[in-house]
Amino acid sequence: MSTVDKKIPILIVDDYKTMLRIIKNLLKQLDFNNVDEATDGAMALQKLREKDYGLVISDWNMEPMSGMQLLTEVRADVKLKDLPFIMVTAESKTENVIAAKQAGVNNYIVKPFNAATLKSKLSAVLGNF
């Protein structure tokens, strides 16, 4: 039985609109329809401070503020520090994964990815659905 509230607001962050669209469509297939978008870390941080989100799914390689900088800011913010954060990135070196883990990421998806991978990581972070 699903324990996940699929109405939770989710913020997806990527500087490629194509990727935002892919993630949004895949989330929609999983019945997560309350999805907002941001195209870099700074915009995402602003949105996170204006609205209560239940999950962030962010790319790493963005300018001017990267996904890693966003994660660091989130974890340093008293109100946001416990927000679930999934990194979705083409950065697939071990050192990247370690750095993200040390910064407090909840899960890490390497691009290109498929719907099953996204679903399994969402389950790992939010609970089974």
Partner: peptide, 16 residues
């Protein structure tokens, strides 16, 4: 349709 969505990730990767 899901497979097409997944495949469209090529645009992000090639762009990078």
């Amino acid at each position: 349709v899901t497979r097409v969505y997944e495949a469209c990730g090529f645009q992000d990767i090639t762009g990078q």
